[in-house]
Design a protein around this nucleic acid. Sequence first.
DNA 1: CACTAGATTTTCT
DNA 2: GAAAATCTAGTGG
Length: 206
Amino acid sequence: MYRTRTGPVALPSTFFARSALHAAPDLLGCTLVRRIRGRELLTGQIIETEAYGGHRDRASHAFQGPTPRNAVMFGPPGFAYVYFTYGMHWLFNVVCDAEGTPAAVLIRGVELFVGNGQKAPGHRRRSSASGLLPSTPVRLNGPAKLTKALGITGALNGEDLSTSTRLWITQPAPPREHLRILRTPRIGVDYAGPAAAWKRRFLLEE
DNA sequence: CACTAGATTTTCT
DNA sequence: GAAAATCTAGTGG
Protein backbone atom coordinates (compact mmCIF):
# COMPACT_ATOMS: atom_id res chain seq x y z
CA MET A 1 0.00 0.00 0.00
CA TYR A 2 0.96 3.58 -0.60
CA ARG A 3 3.88 2.43 -2.79
CA THR A 4 4.68 2.71 -6.44
CA ARG A 5 7.43 1.17 -8.52
CA THR A 6 9.51 4.28 -7.91
CA GLY A 7 9.29 3.88 -4.15
CA PRO A 8 7.09 5.07 -1.32
CA VAL A 9 4.86 8.05 -2.02
CA ALA A 10 3.34 10.47 0.45
CA LEU A 11 0.61 9.13 2.67
CA PRO A 12 -2.71 10.40 1.24
CA SER A 13 -5.08 12.50 3.29
CA THR A 14 -7.36 9.45 3.61
CA PHE A 15 -4.73 7.93 5.95
CA PHE A 16 -5.47 10.73 8.40
CA ALA A 17 -9.25 10.78 7.93
CA ARG A 18 -9.89 8.96 11.22
CA SER A 19 -9.44 9.61 14.90
CA ALA A 20 -6.01 10.73 16.06
CA LEU A 21 -6.11 7.86 18.53
CA HIS A 22 -6.07 5.36 15.66
CA ALA A 23 -3.67 7.24 13.40
CA ALA A 24 -1.06 7.90 16.11
CA PRO A 25 0.21 4.33 16.57
CA ASP A 26 0.06 3.67 12.81
CA LEU A 27 2.46 6.57 12.22
CA LEU A 28 5.16 4.84 14.25
CA GLY A 29 7.74 3.40 11.89
CA CYS A 30 6.65 5.69 9.07
CA THR A 31 9.18 8.07 7.58
CA LEU A 32 9.00 11.82 7.91
CA VAL A 33 10.54 13.50 4.87
CA ARG A 34 11.66 17.12 4.68
CA ARG A 35 13.03 18.75 1.54
CA ILE A 36 14.68 22.12 2.01
CA ARG A 37 15.15 24.54 -0.85
CA GLY A 38 14.36 21.68 -3.24
CA ARG A 39 17.70 20.01 -2.58
CA GLU A 40 18.48 18.79 0.91
CA LEU A 41 16.48 15.65 1.68
CA LEU A 42 16.17 14.86 5.37
CA THR A 43 14.37 11.76 6.56
CA GLY A 44 13.57 10.31 9.95
CA GLN A 45 11.66 7.30 11.18
CA ILE A 46 8.83 8.34 13.48
CA ILE A 47 9.40 6.77 16.89
CA GLU A 48 7.05 8.69 19.21
CA THR A 49 3.58 10.23 18.77
CA GLU A 50 0.70 11.58 20.86
CA ALA A 51 -3.01 11.79 19.98
CA TYR A 52 -5.08 14.89 20.72
CA GLY A 53 -8.72 15.65 20.07
CA GLY A 54 -12.22 14.58 20.87
CA HIS A 55 -14.95 16.22 22.88
CA ARG A 56 -13.56 15.45 26.31
CA ASP A 57 -9.85 16.00 25.74
CA ARG A 58 -8.97 18.99 27.88
CA ALA A 59 -5.34 18.65 26.79
CA SER A 60 -6.24 19.42 23.17
CA HIS A 61 -5.66 22.93 21.90
CA ALA A 62 -9.08 22.73 20.27
CA PHE A 63 -10.94 21.96 23.50
CA GLN A 64 -12.10 25.55 23.95
CA GLY A 65 -13.04 25.99 20.29
CA PRO A 66 -11.30 27.63 17.35
CA THR A 67 -8.63 30.33 17.76
CA PRO A 68 -6.23 31.82 15.22
CA ARG A 69 -3.54 29.42 16.39
CA ASN A 70 -5.49 26.16 16.28
CA ALA A 71 -7.57 26.93 13.16
CA VAL A 72 -5.81 24.27 11.08
CA MET A 73 -6.99 21.57 13.50
CA PHE A 74 -10.56 22.29 12.38
CA GLY A 75 -9.70 21.89 8.72
CA PRO A 76 -9.41 18.74 6.59
CA PRO A 77 -7.09 15.87 7.58
CA GLY A 78 -3.53 15.41 6.35
CA PHE A 79 -2.42 19.01 6.91
CA ALA A 80 0.42 20.21 9.13
CA TYR A 81 -0.46 21.98 12.37
CA VAL A 82 2.72 23.74 13.49
CA TYR A 83 2.53 25.97 16.55
CA PHE A 84 4.91 27.96 18.71
CA THR A 85 5.11 27.32 22.43
CA TYR A 86 7.04 28.32 25.53
CA GLY A 87 8.23 31.36 23.63
CA MET A 88 10.90 29.17 22.04
CA HIS A 89 9.79 26.02 20.28
CA TRP A 90 7.88 24.90 17.19
CA LEU A 91 5.83 21.70 17.53
CA PHE A 92 4.69 19.65 14.54
CA ASN A 93 1.34 17.85 14.33
CA VAL A 94 -0.68 16.20 11.58
CA VAL A 95 -4.38 17.05 11.47
CA CYS A 96 -6.66 14.03 11.71
CA ASP A 97 -10.35 13.17 11.52
CA ALA A 98 -13.02 14.83 9.37
CA GLU A 99 -13.08 18.51 8.53
CA GLY A 100 -14.84 20.33 11.37
CA THR A 101 -13.75 17.69 13.90
CA PRO A 102 -10.53 19.00 15.46
CA ALA A 103 -7.90 16.33 16.08
CA ALA A 104 -4.17 15.98 15.58
CA VAL A 105 -1.20 13.70 16.16
CA LEU A 106 1.84 15.37 17.72
CA ILE A 107 5.08 13.99 16.31
CA ARG A 108 7.32 13.74 19.37
CA GLY A 109 10.33 11.77 18.19
CA VAL A 110 12.20 10.66 15.09
CA GLU A 111 15.31 8.68 14.35
CA LEU A 112 16.99 11.05 11.94
CA PHE A 113 18.88 10.12 8.80
CA VAL A 114 20.52 12.48 6.37
CA GLY A 115 20.29 11.92 2.62
CA ASN A 116 22.64 12.81 -0.22
CA GLY A 117 25.52 13.65 2.09
CA GLN A 118 23.71 16.77 3.22
CA LYS A 119 23.54 17.94 6.78
CA ALA A 120 20.45 19.05 8.63
CA PRO A 121 20.18 22.40 10.35
CA GLY A 122 20.81 21.55 13.96
CA HIS A 123 21.96 18.08 13.06
CA ARG A 124 25.57 19.06 12.58
CA ARG A 125 25.52 20.99 15.83
CA ARG A 126 23.89 18.08 17.63
CA SER A 127 26.27 15.57 16.08
CA SER A 128 29.42 17.41 17.02
CA ALA A 129 28.08 17.96 20.51
CA SER A 130 27.56 14.23 20.97
CA GLY A 131 30.71 13.19 19.10
CA LEU A 132 28.77 11.28 16.42
CA LEU A 133 29.62 11.19 12.76
CA PRO A 134 27.25 13.17 10.52
CA SER A 135 25.98 9.96 8.90
CA THR A 136 25.09 8.28 12.19
CA PRO A 137 21.35 7.93 12.81
CA VAL A 138 20.38 10.19 15.68
CA ARG A 139 17.49 9.36 17.97
CA LEU A 140 15.68 12.60 18.71
CA ASN A 141 13.14 12.32 21.51
CA GLY A 142 11.32 15.58 22.05
CA PRO A 143 8.90 17.38 19.76
CA ALA A 144 10.91 20.60 19.67
CA LYS A 145 14.20 18.84 19.00
CA LEU A 146 12.94 17.25 15.81
CA THR A 147 11.42 20.43 14.41
CA LYS A 148 14.72 22.20 14.95
CA ALA A 149 16.69 19.39 13.33
CA LEU A 150 14.35 19.26 10.31
CA GLY A 151 13.92 23.00 9.97
CA ILE A 152 10.16 22.89 10.60
CA THR A 153 8.68 26.26 11.57
CA GLY A 154 5.39 28.14 11.37
CA ALA A 155 6.07 28.67 7.69
CA LEU A 156 4.85 25.08 7.26
CA ASN A 157 1.64 25.54 9.26
CA GLY A 158 -1.26 24.52 7.03
CA GLU A 159 0.96 22.61 4.58
CA ASP A 160 -0.88 19.84 2.71
CA LEU A 161 1.28 16.78 3.46
CA SER A 162 -0.29 14.76 0.64
CA THR A 163 0.89 17.15 -2.08
CA SER A 164 3.74 19.14 -0.50
CA THR A 165 7.25 19.03 -1.94
CA ARG A 166 8.64 20.38 1.34
CA LEU A 167 7.20 18.04 3.97
CA TRP A 168 5.45 14.68 3.82
CA ILE A 169 5.24 11.22 5.40
CA THR A 170 5.76 7.86 3.70
CA GLN A 171 4.82 4.39 4.81
CA PRO A 172 7.87 2.17 4.48
CA ALA A 173 7.78 -1.47 3.52
CA PRO A 174 6.43 -3.97 6.02
CA PRO A 175 6.93 -5.83 8.30
CA ARG A 176 4.92 -3.68 10.67
CA GLU A 177 3.44 -6.64 12.51
CA HIS A 178 6.35 -7.09 14.87
CA LEU A 179 6.75 -3.47 15.84
CA ARG A 180 6.74 -3.23 19.62
CA ILE A 181 4.61 -0.28 20.68
CA LEU A 182 4.46 1.15 24.20
CA ARG A 183 1.54 3.26 25.48
CA THR A 184 1.85 5.85 28.24
CA PRO A 185 0.07 9.02 29.36
CA ARG A 186 0.95 12.14 27.39
CA ILE A 187 3.75 14.48 28.43
CA GLY A 188 3.15 17.87 30.02
CA VAL A 189 -0.63 17.74 30.31
CA ASP A 190 -1.02 17.39 34.09
CA TYR A 191 -3.45 20.33 34.05
CA ALA A 192 -5.95 18.45 31.86
CA GLY A 193 -7.93 16.64 34.57
CA PRO A 194 -8.99 13.09 33.70
CA ALA A 195 -7.44 13.42 30.24
CA ALA A 196 -4.01 13.63 31.86
CA ALA A 197 -4.20 9.92 32.68
CA TRP A 198 -5.28 8.74 29.24
CA LYS A 199 -2.67 6.57 27.53
CA ARG A 200 -2.45 8.42 24.24
CA ARG A 201 1.33 8.55 23.85
CA PHE A 202 2.81 5.87 21.61
CA LEU A 203 6.50 4.90 21.47
CA LEU A 204 8.40 2.51 19.27
CA GLU A 205 10.47 0.19 21.41
CA GLU A 206 14.14 0.02 20.41
C1' DC B 1 23.44 13.09 39.54
C1' DA B 2 19.11 16.78 40.95
C1' DC B 3 17.35 20.97 40.49
C1' DT B 4 16.52 25.73 38.61
C1' DA B 5 16.26 29.68 35.56
C1' DG B 6 15.34 31.38 31.36
C1' DA B 7 14.09 31.68 26.49
C1' DT B 8 9.35 35.03 25.50
C1' DT B 9 4.14 33.61 22.11
C1' DT B 10 -0.59 32.35 22.57
C1' DT B 11 -4.36 31.80 25.19
C1' DC B 12 -7.25 31.99 29.06
C1' DT B 13 -8.38 33.99 33.75
C1' DG C 1 -0.89 37.94 35.12
C1' DA C 2 0.17 33.04 34.59
C1' DA C 3 0.75 28.83 32.50
C1' DA C 4 1.70 26.15 28.54
C1' DA C 5 1.52 19.50 24.06
C1' DT C 6 9.72 22.37 25.87
C1' DC C 7 14.59 22.20 26.13
C1' DT C 8 19.20 23.77 27.48
C1' DA C 9 22.77 25.57 30.29
C1' DG C 10 24.14 26.35 34.56
C1' DT C 11 24.61 25.55 39.60
C1' DG C 12 25.40 22.66 43.53
C1' DG C 13 25.84 18.16 46.05
